[in-house]
Structure formats: C-alpha cells, structure tokens
Amino acid sequence: MNFFLQIIVSGLTLGAMYSLSAVGLSLVWGSFNMLNMAHGAIMTLGAYFVIIWFDSMGMTLWLAAPFALICAAIAGVILYFISAHWMLTKRAFDTNIMIATIGISIALQTGLLKAFGGEPYAQPLSLRSYSFMVNDVPVSYQRLVIWATALILMVGVGIFLSRTNFGRAVRATAQNRDAAQLMGVRVRRVYVAVLALASVLAAVSGIMLSSMKELMPLMGGEPLLKAFIVIILAGLGNVTGALYAAILVGLLEAAVQVLVGAQYGFPAILIFVILVLIWKPAGLFGRRTVARQ
C-alpha cells in the first residue's frame, strides 16, 4: 500500500513538472511547427534567473520569482527574433529550426556553465525540508506547491486558450496558418507570444525541478528529453493530450523507480516511447490524420 502511495506522490510530482514544460513545447509545435530544442536550456535559464535576482541582486524571493519569469518571457521573444523570424518562409522549416535550436541550446547551456560554474546551486525557492506524513509516506510541502502551481497554471492556460481573443487566435493559427492570416490574425505576433508563454511555463518547470533536486547548467537536457517523450506520446501539437501524457509518464517513471530501481525509470519510458512511436506515430491520443488534399 505504501508502495502505491509513494508511486502516486512522486509520480504526480513528476507529472506536474513535465506537464508544464511539455504543454509549452506542444503549444509551440502546434502553432508553427517549431520543435524547440532550446526549451530545456530556457528551463535552466529560468531557474538561474531566480538565483540572479535573489542572490546577486538581493531581491526577496517573492519578487525574484516573478522577475525570473519575466526574464524567461523575454528570452522566448529573443529566441523568436534570432531564429524562427528569419526561417519561417524558407524551405524545410521544421528540420532547419530544430538544428538551429540545438545550436542555440548548446550555446546557452555552455554560456551558463561558464557564468555559474559546474557546481550545483541550491534553489532558494524551495520548501523541500518541510513535510508531513500520509500513511508513513512523507510528503513535502514543496510537492504541494508544485501540484498547486501546475494546476493553477494549466487551468490558466486552458482559460487563456479557450476564452480570450488572443487564445482563439493561437488556436486558429495552429489549425490553419493561412486561413488565420486571411481572417486578420497577425500570425507572427501569435508566434512570439506563444514562444514567450512557453518559455514562462518552461521557467516555472525549471524552478520546480531545481527545487526538488539541485540547480546545474546542464540540468535541462534530461527534462527536455522527457518533455519530448510526453509530447510524442500525446501526439505532437496536442496540448490537452500533453497534460494527460505528462501525468502518465510521471506515474510510469515513478512506478518503475519504486518497483524496479531508480536507475531504470528513464530507460523504461524511453523504451515505452520508442514502441509507441513505431506503433502509433501520431501518438496515443492523436487522431489519425486523413491524407486528403
């Protein structure tokens, strides 16, 4: 029974963290077929911004966190203007921008490594050391914060996409770029905004991640891969599916970690996603698209 509870507690936490980064990634792909390989680096960057504003600039945490998110949004905007902006109308956009963002990601990560050194930092924004017990399973308050934040942000994003005009513009662009453009949607603005939003979500996810483990320049690599795994499972561009898939992956990983061994969690979900990709390339929740001109 405790095993089960442990899996749920840790799986939901992982799922909450993955969902934030995966939803952002999925939103960006869905809007304009940009597979953003720099997403992980932006996660890391967001987490470091907390350190910058808190440690170096002496802000209070309550101020440092929002400032970090604003910086992440700016990073997303900059990313758009140094990469996608120039490539949108050229051939093979999806593969080219993937390679370009791999380059940007490595540049950013090594830049962080140079600036902060390789030693891990403790994320100041953490309640990890405080916890309560449920059936002899310790649950730290940090996990509660993560669950709550993820929930609030997901609901927020959902409302944003479904209820606001801008959200409708995003969805319209995702469904048909040309039609949206003809209907007066300024699609390039949508792209910038979506990348900014995704970067904020990535930063939140990065802060959470570093609050559970520690902060390192290269920490973005594995979460990025996991976020990719999540959005592949959901079917690229399926934002709601990404949410479910994130929780599924989190639980699966936690289950393997608890039942088989900690080091097998990641290989297990890798095998899982490879099989799903081969079996159903459109993802678990993806509808089969009908090829018809």
């Binding site: 990469s83 120039w86 490539m87 080219n96 390679i99 370009a100 380059g103 540049a107 090594t110 140079k114």
Partner: peptide
C-alpha cells in the same frame, strides 16, 4: 562550444 552552437544556429538560419 558557445561559439560552436552559435555557428550552427547562424548557418541554419
């Protein structure tokens, strides 16, 4: 590696 990543990105773009 910073320069390197930058070059790859710049060439692609």
């Amino acid at each position: 590696d910073v320069i390197f990543g930058g070059i790859v990105a710049a060439v692609m773009i």
